[in-house]
């Protein structure tokens, strides 16, 4: 574990720096009793009317779950990559098989529309044909119905 000594030192130094500067800030900063308006959630000056949402679009949970698949995949790739030279063709075929299973998961997710973001798109069928007579209004040649 000697190898991680510098990292431990850096961790301590980081904690010291962050807490030290916060202590300095607490020492220098004014100590007033903040008004209620200051303590309220900041919404550009508008008085907040509703609580922060308790529920999110389900897509965020989906992303978190799908992420687990791909992150586990990447984690398994690292040991393979380190010893790839020794494994040679065997390793290549193994990793191809492994990638195919993960790729199948990706294809399934994509074809189910699980990774679609953005608003739901609505289509309108049978748009009337757009011609120059239907889209351009000619000034000075009002049709008789409009003049009436």
């Amino acid at each position: 574990m000697d190898q991680y000594l510098p990292i431990l030192g850096l961790l301590l130094l980081g904690v010291l720096f962050a807490s030290g500067s916060l202590v300095a800030s607490a020492w220098l900063a004014p100590h007033k009793r903040p008004t209620d308006a200051k303590l309220a959630p900041y919404e550009c000056g508008i008085v907040p009317e509703s609580e922060p949402p308790q529920r999110f679009p389900v897509r965020f949970y989906l992303v978190a779950m799908i992420f687990v698949i791909f992150d586990i995949e990447v984690v398994f790739m690292y040991p393979f990559a380190v010893v790839f030279r020794q494994l040679h063709v065997f390793g290549l075929i193994e990793i191809l098989t492994f990638s195919l299973t993960v790729f199948a998961a990706l294809v399934f997710l994509v074809s189910e529309g699980a990774l679609q973001w953005g608003p739901v798109k609505y289509l309108t069928p049978g748009m009337p044909e757009r011609t120059s007579s239907s889209t351009i209004v000619r000034i000075g040649r009002d049709d008789p119905e409009q003049a009436a």
Binding site: S111, E112, G113, V120, K121, Y122, T124, P125, P128, R130
Partner: peptide
């Protein structure tokens, strides 16, 4: 396939007037 799942036939609105 994913695109059709997103905007399938049940997501088609009736036409409203001319545009």
């Amino acid at each position: 396939l994913g695109k059709t799942r997103e905007s399938g036939p049940e997501r088609v609105l009736p036409t409203i007037g001319q545009r």
